[in-house]
Amino acid sequence: MARPKHSILSPKLIAGAALRLVAKHGDFTIPGVAAALDVHPSSLYHHLPGGRLAIVHRMREELYADIDLGPSLDTTAAPLDRLRLWMRAYRAATARVPAVVPVLVGAPVEDLRTLEIYEALFVILRDAGVPVEQRVACSAMVDAVALGSAIDAGSPVPLWRIDGYELPELRAVGSLGDDEQRAPAGFELGVEAVVAAVARIAAGESVSANR
């Protein structure tokens, strides 16, 4: 039997094509995904009837499919250590396609895989002793650091191009850390800041700014 000319279309293939377009162009379109897969746009709706939003949900599933939640849910480890592991895993997966963050944050989270990841986060916050009414705010703080750092992972190296300018502080610090380790080092500082804030909240201390 003759083999088909093209790969059999599937949600996985569609999501993969969309992720590649986002990595290259910063966004994707239905016609663009169809062209990348050499199919008619209507074929995409057959596999993902929800159109663009359905593709975004499937992109999330693909992006986070390999995250191992086992260490984050290991109750033999301290909750704050588990929080560190969760943040590192989430940031690493997202940083594979830094440009995808604006696409993802513009859509609600509905896919089971990503919901399971956030379920694990709320289990960690519960085990850490964070009051239930403050857990959503804590998750937003975690997102700000993890997703923000994932975007930062796409920054050029070096980041600051200062030749021709009289900027002595930038010149001094740039020579000491404006390299491939700038974004990872900044993320680790952010992780420790989050862990410290969660510990304070769990202890009943206020970390909110005055409103």
Rank of each mutant, 00 (worst) to 15 (best):
V39C: 02
A17T: 01
G16M: 10
H40K: 06
K24Y: 12
G32T: 03
H6I: 03
A18K: 03
H40P: 00
K5T: 03
L21E: 09
A23C: 10
A34K: 01
H25V: 13
K24I: 15
I14D: 12
H40F: 03
A23S: 12
G16L: 09
A17M: 01
A36H: 07
A36M: 11
G16T: 14
S10G: 14
D27E: 14
G26K: 07
I8R: 13
L13Y: 14
A17I: 00
L21Y: 02
P11V: 15
L9F: 14
R20S: 11
A35K: 05
V39Y: 00
I30M: 07
K12Y: 15
S10H: 13
A35M: 04
A15N: 08
A17K: 00
K12W: 15
T29W: 02
L13R: 13
L13K: 13
A34N: 03
D27C: 06
V33I: 11
V22R: 02
H6W: 02
A17L: 01
P31Y: 11
H25M: 11
V39W: 00
L9Q: 07
A35H: 04
A17D: 01
D27H: 13
L21R: 06
K12I: 15
V22Y: 05
G26Q: 10
K24H: 12
H25D: 13
V22P: 03
I14H: 08
A23R: 11
A34M: 02
L37Y: 10
P11Y: 15
K12Q: 14
P31K: 09
H25C: 10
K12C: 12
D38I: 07
A15C: 12
F28L: 06
K24D: 14
A34Q: 03
I30Y: 04
A34F: 01
P31T: 10
R20M: 09
V33W: 00
V33H: 01
A34C: 03
V39G: 00
R20C: 08
T29G: 04
S7R: 09
A35W: 01
L37M: 10
K24T: 15
D27M: 11
L37P: 11
I30W: 03
V33A: 02
V39P: 00
A15G: 15
S7V: 06
L21P: 00
A35E: 08
F28G: 04
L9V: 14
L37W: 09
A15E: 07
I8V: 15
G16A: 13
T29A: 02
A34H: 01
A23Q: 12
I14V: 15
P31R: 08
D27W: 13
V22E: 04
I8Y: 12
L9A: 10
A35L: 05
K5Q: 04
H6M: 05
V39K: 00
H6S: 06
K5Y: 02
G26P: 05
A15D: 08
V33N: 00
K24C: 13
G32Q: 05
D38R: 12
T29V: 03
I8C: 10
P11K: 12
V22H: 04
V22S: 05
I30E: 04
V33G: 01
A15V: 14
G16D: 13
A36C: 07
A35R: 05
